[in-house]
Design a protein around this nucleic acid. Structure first.
Lengths: 190, 190
DNA sequence: ACCGTACAATTTGGACCCGAACGATTGCGT
DNA sequence: ACGCAATCGTTCGGGTCCAAATTGTACGGT
């Protein structure tokens, strides 16, 4: 197992660096590999099916969400796509410019904006998604259906843990102290 | 196997959208959850231990790589950190400006640049990494050590599949055609 | 000594990314 | 009727991200 080796090697070096402090190896390996896998999968998808239709990963995910859920409020789209509201504004603008998405005012609540696919966007997804799913099958090609189920279930546990207990955990870590603002980001005007 | 099906609503909607075309559900669930988990974990780490010391995820990973491997050539750091050389140049500049990293010319090969931690950077990692590992344990808190091992092994298979067969696969998909340049990014001058 | 190729890091351009600040709109309480 | 806190989407600042273009160094062959 070539790929496996370099990670454990790093872990050993890290433990040596830390002297006697015990590390949670298995947990560390999960996090490290989640990220490696996410990058690898994203890279492969972008450089195969997505590149040809000039979509980034994020743009595709946004399209997918709108496609599957139908016309939706932007906050829901951002939530489902896993990006911030601010990011969605930019991505939606890009997609709108390319004629794949259209925006509409909410009939009852003037604060809301609704996003939906244009005919062109709909046609694009109908064409691209099967190819996308095909590559999802490729990247998981070394795993059986059953193994896929097990891995997916384990990952779901991680997502749930963070979503359900993350906020509480972060509060506890900071011990009621101020959450420390980002160094970057917008400043108050005056 | 416990805990089946939760993402399936979106999957069913997608299948309905596609009419008769069969979807690879289990494979789709793995990819979707890899990305959700990666985002959730990154978000939690950035908003807990990393925020307090004003480090982004990427910046931390870069520091970690240099810390564990010692003084290294930039190309190796980029490779290990999972980012492009171009990105590393910017990140390294940021870290250098903050006095956590220093660069040095390679003694023998004038093309190479070596990165190493400053004393301050070393001290920071010794302080931050245990807290980081603690949160890695938190996010995987719903999984046993054994389950962690299984999930990590599964993810490693995904990484390996892409790294070993990805290039060939992409070639086959494009059928020898030109790889289609990104719409974004630098253009030819004239 | 001079080529040309190979390979190094950096620069550059467009898109993405978060989260604080902001302006607009809502709806609740008075 | 009238604030006024809550919540929406957008703007903005600092930074990340990739890949093509660029700049610079190394080294083989002549």
């Amino acid at each position: 197992m070539p790929g496996h080796r370099s990670i454990t090697e790093a872990e050993k070096l890290a433990e040596a660096k830390l002297g006697g402090i015990p590390l949670r190896h298995d947990q560390m390996a999960v996090v490290a590999n989640i990220y490696r896998a996410a990058s690898a999968v994203r890279q492969h998808l972008e450089n195969s099916v997505l590149r040809g239709v000039d979509l980034t990963w994020t743009a595709f995910v946004v399209l997918w969400v709108i496609w599957v859920w139908g016309e939706s409020e932007t906050r829901h789209v951002a939530e489902e796509a896993g990006i911030s509201k601010g990011t969605l504004t930019g991505v939606a603008r890009t997609l709108e410019r390319r004629g794949l998405v259209q925006r509409a005012d909410h009939p009852a609540d003037g604060r809301l904006v609704l996003l939906s696919l244009t005919d062109q966007g709909e046609e694009l997804m109908r064409r691209v998604f099967p190819a996308f799913n095909e590559e999802e099958a490729f990247v998981t090609g070394q795993l059986s259906d059953e193994q896929c189920g097990i891995v997916a279930a384990g990952l779901r546990q991680v997502v749930l843990q963070v979503e359900e207990n993350g906020e509480t955990r972060r509060q506890a870590l900071l011990g009621g102290a101020a959450p420390a603002p980002r160094r970057s980001g917008r400043r108050r005007k005056a």
